[in-house]
Every structure is written in C-alpha cells, then in structure tokens.
Amino acid sequence: MSAKIMNVDNEIKGAFFDMAHTPSVVFDKNMVFLDMNEAAISTLNIKKSDFIGKSILEAFPYLEGTERLEAYKNVIKTGKPISLDEISFYTDDKTFVFIVRAFKVGEGLGVTTLDITNLITTIDKLKATQNNLQIVNKNLKLKNKELEEFSYVAAHDLRAPLTNMQSLFGMLESSNAITDEVKPIFDKLKYVGKLMCDKLKALNNVIALKSNLEDKKEKVIFKEVVAKIKAIHSEKIVTSRAIIKEDFTALPTINYNPVQFDSILHNLISNAIKYKHPRRKPIIHVSTHLENNKPVLIIKDNGLGFDTSNGKSKVFGLFKRMHTHVEGLGVGLYIIHSIIVGNGGQIEVVSEENKGTQFKIYF
C-alpha cells in the first residue's frame, strides 16, 4: 500500500475518531494517554492538554489496584476485547456512568464508552418512586384493614342493643300492653328494628367476605355445585315449576375458592327463582364456554328483568334493590361483584323488564 493511500486511510480514521458521538480515548502500552476525541472532552468537560502524556493513574488515581485496571492491562497483553457495564468515572465536580468497550489498538489500548449517567439517574428515580408507592400501598392496606376491623366491631356492637330492643318489643307484645291505637306504630317499630338487625348482619358478612378474598383455590365442578343448590331450593323449584338447564361441556370445572363460587351461583340461581315472572314458569340456563381461552359462566333467566337505563353498575351496589315486592336486602349482587372483582374477574349484566336477565361472568 502506498504512503499516499495510507495517509488518506489514517485521515479517514482520524476524522471518524474525532466526530464519533461516543467518548473514546487511546492509551499506549504503558497506559499513558495518547489521544481522546471531542466527545470525551465535551462530555467530561476537560482539557485535552491536561491528559495527553499522563498515565491513567495520574488522571484517575482511584483506579489503583482495581479489577478494572487489571482488565485493561490484560486486553493489552492478550488482545482480547472486553465490555464493562455501569463503570463510574469521577471528575472534580461530577460522577459519570459509562458502558465501556476496551480493545487493543496497535501495542496500546482503545476505550470507547456510552454515557448512561442520565439513564441510571432516571432508573434510580423510578426505583425510588416504586419503593415509595410500595410503602404507600402497604399503608393503605393497613388502613383498610383497620377500617374493616372497626366496621366489623361497630356493626357487631350495634347488633346487641338492637337485639335487646327486639326482645323488649316481644315482651311488650306478650304482656298485652300494646293497645289497638298504638299497634300500627308498634308494628312499624318492630319492622324497622328487624330491618336494622338484618342489615348489620349483612354488613358483617360483607366485611368477613372482603377480608377473605385471597383464600386458597381448588378444583370446583360446576355440575356438583348446581346439584347442591337444587337440593337446597328443591321446595321452591317444585312450587314455582322452575326448570334449570345446564351445559358445562365446554368447561366442566374451574379453579376457584369453593365457598365463594357456591355464593356466586347460589345468589344468581336463587334470584332467578325469586324474581320469576308471574305469568310463566321460570326457565334458568346455566352454561360455560371459553372466550379467548378464558372461562366464562352465563346464567340466563326469563324472569321479571329490570331497567338498566340508570346505569348497570348500580345493580351491584350495596343495599340496591331492583324489585321490592319480595323480601330482600339488596346484598347478594354486591357480594357476587365483590368476589368476582376481588379474584381479578368481571361480571356483566343484560336485562329487560318483563323479558329476563343474563349475567355473564369472566373468570
């Protein structure tokens, strides 16, 4: 190769070295600075003249005896390049973090770097934010637990005086102390007292349920659960002439908390019987299938149905009732919704007055 070609080649290499975006330096075999590019000078905010001719230890005395310095010497000795992650460089006023690539150049060493200082700072901030969020989340869980315990104690303690009040009502009634004139008012007081007791009991059940949503899951067989519900409500089924149609061929079992799953199906099937249409016998379809490889349970009836124009989410509110002509507290659907959402699922409802209701549960 002619001297002219070699000079052109060296000029190209030199231009590339100077214009490279990443900080780069060149050392001789004794680890003395031979050259550094503009990116190194501007990134570290240094003068080139302060480094050229100095050894690496004169510039960075903290490298004395480090594995990094030995690794650099080994590259010169063996010719095998190395890569180092998150290497710190210290100047008088700042610390830099680089990804380093070291390789042999002639008899010396070439080092090119990628400045990741800002990236590391961002990651550290994100970690700190994550830690703070974890602390906040832990505190929120603690506060929620305290509120649950307070609610349970409050509801439990309120039941005692209400129960005593009901006993006093019973004593008054049995002693014939209630006159015909005040009997209507007395009966209303009894009804209100019973309603308050029932609601407090329901609240305790809801609180107990919410505190046990993370219980262990096991294999649940749909057909067995429905059979149990049929046995419990056999009298109502016979009286109403209800027909329960089942189809679990697509998905005969599911991994779920058995008590919670019983509560879901029990509430939905018993509601379908309770809110049957007066002019036709209730037909209840219970089936399973897969949507996008996820299990789905559908309970559909031909009962009274209800108006959902005011918002379907209100259906699952605590003490919200769609019909008031039969006894109930409006707790069942709230409990179902809490169980399903607490287990990471979703429930949808489609209903139309006098035509029926369909609940679709995504597990």
Score class of each variant (00 low, 15 high):
E327V: 09
M322V: 06
T308I: 15
K312Y: 10
R321Y: 09
E327D: 15
G305S: 02
D301L: 05
K320Q: 11
K300L: 09
G317M: 08
H289M: 12
L304H: 01
F319N: 13
N292P: 05
H289F: 13
L290E: 12
K276M: 15
P295F: 11
D307P: 09
T324C: 05
H323D: 10
K281D: 15
N302P: 06
T288Q: 03
R280F: 00
H285M: 13
P278Q: 04
I299V: 15
V296P: 03
I299T: 06
T288K: 00
V326Y: 11
V315D: 03
R279H: 13
H289T: 10
S313Y: 10
H285N: 13
H325G: 08
L290K: 13
L290T: 07
K320T: 08
M322A: 10
L318K: 14
V326H: 14
V296H: 06
H277T: 09
R279Q: 15
G303F: 01
N293V: 05
E327M: 07
D301R: 03
N302F: 01
P282Q: 06
G305P: 08
S287N: 12
N292A: 11
G305W: 00
F319Q: 04
H323T: 05
N292S: 13
V286A: 05
N302W: 00
K294N: 11
L297V: 14
R321I: 09
F319E: 06
E291A: 11
S287T: 13
I299N: 01
I284K: 02
S287R: 13
R280T: 01
I283H: 08
H325Y: 14
N310F: 10
Y275Q: 09
Y275E: 11
K294H: 07
S287V: 04
L297C: 06
P282A: 14
S309W: 04
N292E: 14
H323W: 08
I299C: 02
S287L: 12
Y275K: 01
I284N: 00
K300T: 10
G305C: 01
P282C: 03
I299E: 05
L304V: 00
K294V: 08
R279C: 13
F316C: 14
P278A: 02
N293C: 08
S309M: 06
D301G: 02
N302I: 03
S313G: 11
T288S: 08
V315C: 11
S309K: 00
F319M: 07
F306H: 08
R321S: 07
N293H: 09
H325L: 06
V296E: 01
V326N: 14
F306V: 14
D301V: 08
M322L: 12
P295C: 07
L297M: 07
V315T: 15
R279Y: 09
T308Y: 12
S309T: 14
T288G: 01
G305M: 03
V315F: 15
G303D: 01
L290S: 11
H277D: 02
R279D: 15
R321Q: 10
H277P: 05
N293F: 13
